[in-house]
Design a protein around this nucleic acid. Sequence first.
DNA 1: ATATCGCTGGAACGTCGTTCCAGAAGCAAG
DNA 2: CTTGCTTCTGGAACGACGTTCCAGCGATAT
Lengths: 218, 218
Amino acid sequence: MATRTGQDGLSRDRIVEAAIAMLDDGGENALTFRALSTRLKTGAGAIYWHVANKEELLAAATQAVLADVLRGDEGDTTPRDAVRAIALGMFDAIDHHPWIGGQLGGLASRSASMRIIERIGQQVQALGMPQEHQFFATSTLFSFILGVAGQNAANARARVGGRGRAELLGAEAAIWASLDPAEFPFLRSAAGQMGDHDDREQFLVGIDLILSGIGSAR
Amino acid sequence: MATRTGQDGLSRDRIVEAAIAMLDDGGENALTFRALSTRLKTGAGAIYWHVANKEELLAAATQAVLADVLRGDEGDTTPRDAVRAIALGMFDAIDHHPWIGGQLGGLASRSASMRIIERIGQQVQALGMPQEHQFFATSTLFSFILGVAGQNAANARARVGGRGRAELLGAEAAIWASLDPAEFPFLRSAAGQMGDHDDREQFLVGIDLILSGIGSAR
DNA sequence: ATATCGCTGGAACGTCGTTCCAGAAGCAAG
DNA sequence: CTTGCTTCTGGAACGACGTTCCAGCGATAT
């Protein structure tokens, strides 16, 4: 039995909590068993007693973060608003912990992702989609969310140490604006919107676009 | 000047080509400078003369694969079909080289991704989207594509060594089918479609869903 | 012939994930 | 209190990786 799970005793939860903190402020490369050992004032072997390996630790950290998303309850709104609420919950979690963007794809069978798909699916059902298209529509929403998550993760990776979001975005917009208008008319004209857009709003527009696709395919 | 770029001479192209081959049949972990050295019958230092580091090598490999996608020309079809053609080109490239799924997010400023966004953007423009929404609509399509790419990459990762796609899909469907119908009504009812769906068709349905959202928001 | 330059191959370094193990800390039985 | 057993700890050690370093090769220019 557990001898002492109190003060200084190591536990799976304490390890996962520390891992999340390290991931949050140092990115994926900052999570090291050595650094984790130091932070928890213990050795690598002690950590391996509670956690099988790094992959499992990352999965556990992802689950812990997603658990918060699932705590929200979008009671008696319209299905459309319910989907928006779930999606925004995901977005905010990803925004706060960008590293989960690289993890979300792999654990489709794990409980958290399944619960999220279930919730979205129920709302898609409530939107009146024919039975045989519900699965595809739900997957589309989920894939879009994963795509945005992945981009957020990549952006956060490019940001470690160096520049902030605004600076990075500005540099990108500058590149777009300096392109040959004959070859890149679209990127040129979109450079402005690219430079000062709100990620959250852009995300929501995407969700709405898919939702209205679902609405018209009803 | 290059002394001998012929038969056995090392070159950036030969390195990238070998890297793609190794990534294709061994996944991301199979690409090692040591294994690459062995395959090219040379040393690590020789490779580093042509390539700055692993990140650049991965980026170059991704660019090389995407270059093929950009070779296609969707001449005088409808904008809708043009988007479908571009998206399917991406899907097939991702399907053939699943590892690019983990790379696509990061290089938004690099030429290949920019060209793809440009092409999609032009078609979105042709669909009659109001100027101020074109950028968001294009991003939505691109994010969806990246999301599917990421999932493909994760699935391929889970597949190395072990089971094939059908086996993995079947296992997942079995899990869904065995869930508590009270708690997971949607996943239960979708287990069948999950078990025997066609990834490509599912992808195309997603694209169409977004396109019809774009059409109705016109 | 000699010096120079582009390029090569492999040794070496530091870091990582992971394994291994001696032993500390708690508990049960005598 | 002692003895044995189980649970858990800390740190040493291992193999593989990305990367750096450098002695030296062949071809060319002087």
